[in-house]
Amino acid sequence: MRKLHLFFALSLGLFFVILGLSGGVLVFRAELQQAALPQVKLSVLELDNDAQLLPGPDQLFARLKTEFPDARLRSLKLPQRLMDPYLMTVSYQEQGKTRLEQFLVDPLGGKVGRQADFTSPSEAWIYELHSSLFLATPGTFLVGAIGTGLLVLLLLGLGIWGQGLVAAGPEQAKAWLMMSGRARGKGRLALLHRVLGFYFSPLLLLLVASGVLLVFREDILAPFETTRHELHHSETAGENAGHHQSTTEDISTKNCVGVPDIEDYLYQAEQVFPTGVATFIRFPRSKEQPVNVTLRQPGEVPSPLGLSRVLLEMNCGTVVGQQNGLALDWSQTLIERTVALHNGSYWGPAGRLLYAFAGFLPLFFMVTGVLFWRRRKNQTGREVTKIAQS
C-alpha cells in the first residue's frame, strides 16, 4: 500500500499542487470578476437623495440604443450590488452581419462599455489552468482523470494511516491523532503530514470527488437530470418561499394591458416568488417562446444567479411556467449541491475561507511527503550498509 501511495504521489503530486493552488484562488472568483467591473462612486448624501431617481433597466437600454439603434436585448443580468453595472447581451447589425455582444451599462448615467474591456485576465488565466490545464476539452478530461487518481492517493493515505493506528495499539493511539511536542526537524514534518492528512482528508476527498463528478457530469450526473423543458409545460405555480399559494391561472387570467417592458416582466416574476429577488432575464428569439426570469430565494442552494425561474408569455407578460428553487427534485438538487460543494459557496464565507486554506494543503503534503520519503530512504540505506559491514 505504501508503494502504491508513493507511486501516485510522485506521479500526480505536482498536478495536485497546481489544482489545489488554483482552486484556492478561484474560491474568490466572483470577487476577481467584480473587481474588474467599472465602479460608480456616489456619496452617501447623493444616494439618499437620488436613490428613487436612478434610471431603471428600460431607461438604460434606451440609452444603449442611442449608440446601437437596431440593438435587440437578448438577456440582462441585474446588479448584485446597488451601484454595480447592468450586464446587457444584445444583438445588432454591423456591416450587414448580426453580432452578439455584451455591454456594461452604468446604473447612474447610462454610460455604455463593452464587457470585453472589463474582464479579469488573471481570473480567466487561473480558471483555464484549473479546469483544463490550458488544453481545452482534452485538458478537461485530463483533469478528471487526474482527479480520479488523486482520490486513490487520498484513500491509500487513509489506509496507511489506519494500518499504523492498528499496529500502534490503544496505548499509542494518541500519537496518531495529536502532535507530539518531542518531535523535531524532519520527524516533526512527517508527524504533521500524518496528523493533518487524517484531519483534512474528508475535506480533500469532498473537493476532489465533487470535481470529478463535475468533469464527468455527462456520464455520471446527466442520466439523473430532469429535463429543463418540463418547465415550459407547468400549469400551476406551487408553494413559494413565503408559503403563499399562487397558481399560474390566477396570474395568467389577468387582462393584458399594452406591451410589457423589462420591469413588467420582473414585477410579474417577483409576484410568483414574493421573497425572491430577480437576478437575470433572458428574452427568446421568437415571440412564441416565453421570457425566462431567474430569481434567488432565501434558503436556496447557493448559486451565482439563483435557482428559481419564472416563464412569462412575451406579448402579455402572463406566467406560463415556474421552477421553485426551494423545491427542486432530487436530481437537480444533487447537481446544484455538487457545484456549491466544489466551489465552497455551500458553506458561506467561512467555508470559502476554509477552502482557500485547503488549496495550500497539496503543496504542504507534497513537500512533507518528499522529506518523509527521503528520510525513510536514508534510514533504509544506512541499515543496509550496517548489515553489509557486519
Rank of each mutant, 00 (worst) to 15 (best):
G23M: 05
A222L: 03
G96D: 01
L221A: 08
G299N: 04
K386N: 11
L78R: 02
F283D: 13
Q59I: 12
L165S: 04
L32C: 09
L361F: 14
H130F: 05
V257N: 15
A358E: 07
L14Q: 00
M366C: 03
G321C: 07
N49M: 15
L87Q: 09
Y86D: 01
F372T: 10
L54S: 05
R309M: 14
G159I: 06
L60N: 05
V44N: 08
H193M: 15
G185Q: 12
G169N: 08
A241F: 04
V319S: 12
Q323V: 07
T137S: 04
H5R: 05
T279M: 04
V370W: 06
R188G: 00
Q93H: 12
G144E: 15
E300R: 15
S132Y: 03
S201T: 04
G299H: 10
L32E: 08
S22T: 15
S246V: 13
K111M: 14
I281T: 14
P290T: 13
R375M: 11
R309W: 05
W176V: 00
K386R: 13
V105L: 05
E270A: 15
K186D: 01
N255L: 13
N49T: 09
A222D: 12
L19M: 13
G238N: 10
I126T: 11
V112C: 08
Y127M: 10
P79F: 05
A278R: 03
L205T: 01
A278V: 11
G325F: 02
R337L: 08
A241I: 09
L295N: 01
V166W: 12
E225W: 06
A340Q: 13
L312I: 08
P298V: 10
G321A: 11
L54I: 12
G299P: 06
T248C: 00
Y86H: 03
L203G: 12
Q268N: 12
K97W: 15
G139M: 06
T275D: 05
G139E: 03
G159S: 09
A116Y: 02
D58N: 05
G187P: 01
I220K: 06
M314S: 09
G306F: 07
I281G: 12
L78V: 06
L326K: 00
A9H: 03
